[in-house]
């Protein structure tokens, strides 16, 4: 219902009157002291009150432990010797880590794992996204099916892949044996020094490729159709359209997926722990496994804090550089 002359809703006055009355009633019902207090708060103060719980939580569970870990990293503290005097050892822990061959072996294993998983997941994930984006019949169903692995718990995935890799009863080894003719008992996916790193890469790729696909799919869907229509008018080939439109425009999304997976895989623990426990020998001992052993098996708390700080700085530094590159790509 509108006022025919002004075109404004006729309910406006009535509504404002009702609201005013309600506000007055609320003000009257509010005890004086509280009312004064509330009236005395600035917008900024109210905003602070709302975000304070979050900030307190952040300080308590992120910043405080970080500062504490930094402090511990300069000491010889061991959590299993609560009565022992804590000595400041300066940069000794850092120097030991950086000069320790085992640490560099672990970093090498981590780099191998991160490089290959990201490469495979990006290639396969983007290819799948490209196919799904074609919107063929049943594409929604296949998208759901493809997403299933990433919805599973890593503990479940690790355990059932351990069975799949079993040399005597494993389905994976049976299939490989069927196609290659190699006896199943010779396919030692988790026991062979050469195969074990690849066994973990395969599982991680299987599980997390759908995640990369999803991000790439979002990127592909964000490209406006009119650009392709203009390219069609210009008689650009599919190949040309892919290289000049699809890939450049989806690139920020691909880079984002690489960033997420890179950070995740740099601190990969659960899958490796479940599948190989870092073995055979130390072949698959990635940095987080070494860190766990130092912190909770050897109980070298100061030493492991220093190691954690080094890893944190490495991930944080690389991620920052990467984000800068990503922003540059996006701004093009």
């Amino acid at each position: 219902m509108q006022d025919m002359t002004s075109g404004k809703p006729v309910v406006t006055d009535t509504t404002s009157t009702i609201l005013d009355r309600a506000a007055e009633a609320a003000a009257r019902a509010t005890p004086d002291t509280l009312a004064k207090k509330v009236r005395g708060l600035s917008d900024r103060m109210v905003a602070w009150i709302f975000i304070a719980p979050t900030i307190v939580l952040l300080l308590a569970i992120n910043i405080f432990p970080l500062i504490w870990a930094i402090q511990l990293s300069f000491t010889n503290y061991r959590a299993n010797r609560p009565n022992e005097e804590i000595k400041n050892v300066g940069l000794q822990n850092y120097s030991r880590i950086l000069n320790d061959a085992d640490t560099w072996m672990a970093m090498q294993a981590t780099a191998h794992f991160v490089f290959w998983t990201i490469l495979l997941q990006t290639l396969i994930g983007f290819s799948l996204a490209y196919l799904i984006d074609r919107k063929f019949r049943g594409h929604a169903f296949w998208t759901t099916i493809i997403l299933v692995p990433m919805m599973l718990s890593p503990a479940v995935v690790g355990n059932f892949w351990r069975f799949l890799y079993e040399p005597q009863i494993g389905l994976f080894t049976y299939i490989v044996s069927f196609f290659t003719g190699i006896p199943t008992t010779d396919i030692l996916m988790l026991s062979s020094v050469k195969l074990a790193p690849w066994a973990i890469i395969i599982v991680d790729t299987w599980m997390w490729t759908p995640y990369v696909m999803l991000i790439c799919l979002a990127g592909l869907r964000s490209i406006p159709d009119y650009i392709y229509e203009a390219a069609e008018v210009d008689r650009a080939s599919n190949w040309r359209q892919f290289w000049s439109i699809t890939l450049p425009m989806a690139l920020p999304f691909i880079m984002l997926a690489v960033l997420f997976r890179g950070i995740e895989n740099f601190k990969m623990f659960d899958m490796v722990n479940l599948l190989t426990g870092g073995g055979p020998g130390s072949t698959t001992e990635v940095a987080s496994i070494t860190l766990k052993r130092e912190a909770f098996e050897k109980w070298r708390t100061g030493f492991s804090s220093a190691f954690a700080i080094i890893l944190f700085v490495a991930v944080f530094g690389l991620a920052n550089i990467y984000v800068k590159v990503l922003n540059r790509v996006k701004s093009r």
Partner: peptide, 11 residues
């Protein structure tokens, strides 16, 4: 270990 254990018994 090399000669006489079941295949894959590395852990």
């Amino acid at each position: 270990y090399d000669c006489c254990t079941p295949p894959g018994a590395s852990n």
